[in-house]
C-alpha cells in the first residue's frame, strides 16, 4: 500500500506521455500513440477520459489495449479513468507516423503502403511494390492479404527467398 499525497491534476500532455509507453500487445514496437488509435484525451475534475478507435472490428487486442490504457493512467494515481470507443473517423494506416514506420521495418514487418482506390473486385490488382524488410529488395510478391493478425498481409521476397509480413494499408 502506497500512501499518496494529494496529487495535482494531470495535464493532457502528461497523459499523452504516459500513453506513449503503452505498447500494442501484438506489435510491441509500436505504442498506442504511434499506432494512431488514441484520438482524444479529456480531463475534468480529476477524471481522465481517453477516446480510442479500434484498428479492426474483431481485433482481439482491442480489449487488452483498452485495459492497458486504463491501467497505465491509474498507475499515475488517477482514480477515475474512462476509455471511450468511437468508430468515425475510421482508423487508417495513414495515421502511423514516419518514425513508427521505420520501427516496424526494423522489427521485420514491412510498413503499410498508401491507400489505392480500387473497384470492388479488380481484374488486375493495383499494387505498389513492397520492400522486403530483411534485404530491401523490391522483388516481392503478395501471397495473401490475410496474415497472423487482422492487420497484416503475407508476402514473399524473391531475392532472399523469405516470407515476410506487411502491415496492410486500410
Amino acid at each position: 500500500m502506497v500512501t499518496t499525497a494529494a496529487r495535482a491534476e494531470p495535464t493532457r500532455d502528461d497523459v499523452w506521455g504516459w500513453l506513449a509507453e503503452v505498447m500494442d500487445p501484438e506489435v510491441p514496437v509500436l505504442s498506442v500513440i504511434e499506432l494512431g488509435i488514441v484520438r482524444e484525451v479529456e480531463i475534468a475534475h480529476g477524471a481522465v477520459t481517453v477516446t480510442v478507435t479500434p484498428t479492426y472490428s474483431g481485433c482481439p487486442a482491442v480489449q487488452v489495449i483498452n485495459a492497458e490504457i486504463e491501467a497505465a493512467i491509474r498507475a499515475h494515481g488517477v482514480e477515475e479513468v474512462h476509455v471511450r470507443t468511437v468508430y468515425a473517423p475510421a482508423w487508417t494506416t495513414e495515421w502511423i507516423a514516419p518514425e513508427a514506420r521505420a520501427k516496424l521495418k526494423a522489427y521485420g514487418i514491412a510498413p503499410p503502403g498508401h491507400l489505392l482506390t480500387e473497384e470492388l473486385v479488380p481484374l488486375r490488382r493495383a499494387s505498389a511494390a513492397v520492400q522486403c524488410p530483411y534485404c530491401d529488395s523490391m522483388n516481392t510478391k503478395l501471397r495473401s492479404e490475410f496474415g497472423s493478425t487482422a492487420c497484416k498481409s503475407i508476402l514473399f521476397c524473391e531475392e532472399c527467398r523469405q516470407p515476410f509480413e506487411q502491415f496492410k494499408a486500410i
Binding site: Y56, S57, V86, Y87, W91, I170
Partner: peptide, 15 residues
C-alpha cells in the same frame, strides 16, 4: 460511424 469502419473490412472481403 460504424459503417465507415466496417466498409474497409467489407471491401477486402469482397476482393
Amino acid at each position: 460511424a460504424f459503417a465507415s469502419k466496417a466498409i474497409k473490412e467489407a471491401r477486402y472481403h469482397v476482393r
